[in-house]
Amino acid sequence: MKKLNLPKCQIIVDPMKCITSASLTNINIIRSLGGFNEKLFIDCVDTDINCRIMGHDYKILQDNEAYLLQTMGKAKKIGILNALYSLTNLDFFRKVMNVPVYGDLRLYYMSRNSRYIRKTYHNPSKKVSFTYMLTQFLYFTVFFPINRSRVKMWRAVIKGFNDYKNIK
């Protein structure tokens, strides 16, 4: 974290860059905005509340002297991407050399909830855009363990994409 040379504190402008895990949350503000949308269940709960917070002109502050290491599912290291990172030291390869391995239900929620966020909020974040999510699912298709059914994976993604309307 120290190598990033971040300011001690900064205002978050992208609702995807702030998770609620280990956050200090002003409960009165959250309640005044209707609370967390529990129908989102696992993915984009933070993004939804962050969009509402920012949409009501509240600020989200990030303390860069405190941080949380969070694991997003079991990760699978991709040897060629790890080698490319070692050769080039490009941050892109560092970010993609470990692919999280999600179950089909988690992929369903990722697809459903990201579409809900796209349809509910104007320009919420590039990380929930259709192109970004499609790229992510294609990345999973290529790099998930060989014993995973790509057909089941894509059925879950497509079902989630279609079910977003069921979130109110």
Rank of each mutant, 00 (worst) to 15 (best):
F137V: 04
F36Q: 02
R52P: 04
R118L: 12
S32P: 07
W154F: 01
N28E: 10
R150C: 01
I117G: 02
D46G: 07
Y116H: 07
I53H: 05
I30L: 11
I117Q: 02
I53Y: 05
T71W: 14
P100H: 03
N98H: 11
S32L: 14
A22G: 09
A66R: 15
G103R: 14
R94H: 10
R52F: 13
I117F: 01
K126D: 05
Y85V: 09
L87Y: 02
N166K: 12
M97A: 04
R150G: 00
D63Y: 05
T71Y: 15
Y85R: 10
I42S: 14
Y121Q: 03
K17W: 03
V128S: 00
N26L: 07
D46W: 06
M110S: 13
Y85M: 08
P124G: 01
G103K: 15
K127G: 10
Y132T: 00
I146Q: 12
I53M: 07
V45R: 09
I158W: 12
Q10L: 12
L90K: 05
T135V: 06
L84W: 01
I167L: 05
M1E: 14
K8G: 12
K168S: 05
S129P: 15
N82M: 06
K39D: 10
K127I: 10
I49L: 08
N113D: 10
P124N: 00
K77N: 12
I27C: 13
S21L: 10
C18M: 03
K3F: 11
S114N: 02
A22W: 15
L4Y: 11
Y85D: 03
P124Y: 00
C44S: 09
P7G: 08
C18G: 02
A75V: 09
Q10S: 09
E38D: 06
T20A: 14
R112P: 15
Y116V: 09
V45A: 08
K165Q: 13
P100E: 01
L87C: 05
Q70C: 06
Q136I: 15
F36S: 01
N50M: 05
L87F: 03
V101N: 13
L107Q: 15
L4W: 09
S111P: 14
C9K: 11
N89T: 04
S21H: 12
H122A: 14
R155I: 08
I80E: 00
K39V: 02
F93S: 05
T141N: 06
A83R: 08
T47I: 09
I19V: 11
R150P: 00
K95D: 04
K168A: 05
A66T: 12
